[in-house]
Design a protein around this nucleic acid. Structure first.
Lengths: 197, 197
DNA sequence: GCGTGTGATGGGACTCGGTGCCATCACTTA
DNA sequence: TAAGTGATGGCACCGAGTCCCATCACACGC
């Protein structure tokens, strides 16, 4: 009997991701996920508030990490440096052994707008956490919001690139590149130049 | 009998908003909404794909409006001018007689994360529509994405401020102010200056 | 070794959101 | 007057999510 075997939460996550990849999100029921993990519907909803939540693992910790990284930055650090520090604080989640799982996750999320909604909500919470942390350093409201939006945009594009099948480049490199590109774009926008490819 | 009376969709929207404001979103069932509108559950789901959708009225038209406004802008228009044109194209939806309804909508959405998710999804679609329209003008990918994010941020802050109880200021003024503030913030970010209040 | 407590699990009943199908009705046109 | 069309009602059905209680494994005190 699988009852009382450890790591129920992880087993549920893996079972769900496998089934979603095989049959699709809609065609997979919660009891089926629980079955494959050797558990039941009841237990599933004790570990996850939603059917959607099972896809997002420990992503909720990101907001705290970002906030802490910004609060821990040197008092003289610029906003850009704060964003860089925030992006770096997420690096532990991007080890090569988690790459394949991340690729699978991205594919599942990309295929279902229900999951995209949830991802956007998490992104929004991330963004307001960053904005709050920046304001706590004395950055004015508008700048903090734009910086937060820019930071989250950098993070999500970095995530997408890192979680591309076959990618070898380490996350930190990708993240810094994304951030620098966006800061250059901010300069272009500020100057209101028409930039053509 | 209310059957065959016109404006079924509008009646459903009003009934829903009223009930949501009275009892809350969760405590209101779809049959109850339909009842108050003199219709049935079946008809409700023929007009709205979701229980959530009933709150967002004609907001889906915004993406097309924004795109069209950007495509219609003069070839020499800068990115900032394009964003301004896009924001202006939404003005017809912000007449004074719709103000109270908008205030009610905002309150309902702010109180339920389910609805916030949906709003974020619409914002994301709006953002990618703007980014696409900018790229079609030759703006490079990164700049287009950041500009779109900035534009949508300007729009949502403008919407929130306009839909504040007691607000008298017209939408276009608010929107332009929000856009200008954000462009100033972009300049600050580009210069990587620490801005303090 | 034997109760006892605690926390995780199983299981079933229930509500509600959402889908699908078919009958029904009002209105239009031939 | 008859046929056609589009919107609606009504019903059965499925899955998500909630609630409550019974059950089990394990740790602890005696």
């Amino acid at each position: 009997m699988a009852r009382w075997e450890p790591n129920a939460r992880e087993r549920l996550e893996r079972a769900a991701l496998t089934l979603f990849a095989e049959r699709g999100y809609d065609a997979t029921t919660v009891p089926e996920i629980a079955d494959r993990a050797g558990l039941t519907k009841s237990t599933f909803f004790r570990h996850f508030a939603d059917k959607r939540e099972v896809v997002f693992g420990k992503q909720d910790m990101l907001a705290d990490r970002f906030s802490d990284a910004i609060r821990a930055a040197a008092p003289s650090a610029t906003v850009g440096a704060c964003l860089a520090a925030a992006l770096e604080s997420a690096a532990p989640g991007f080890t090569p052994d988690r790459h394949d799982l991340a690729v699978q996750r991205r594919a599942v999320i990309a295929a279902h707008s229900e999951l995209q909604e949830r991802e956007l909500l998490k992104g929004a919470r991330l963004s307001s956490a960053v904005a709050d942390a920046l304001q706590a350093r004395g950055v004015d409201d508008t700048t903090a919001q734009l910086a937060a939006a820019l930071g989250v945009l950098a993070f999500s594009t970095a995530f997408v690139r890192w979680a591309t099948p076959g990618n070898q480049q380490p996350y930190t490199e990708i993240a810094h590149a994304a951030l620098n590109d966006l800061r250059a774009a901010a300069a272009a926008l500020a100057a209101d130049t028409v930039i053509r490819a």
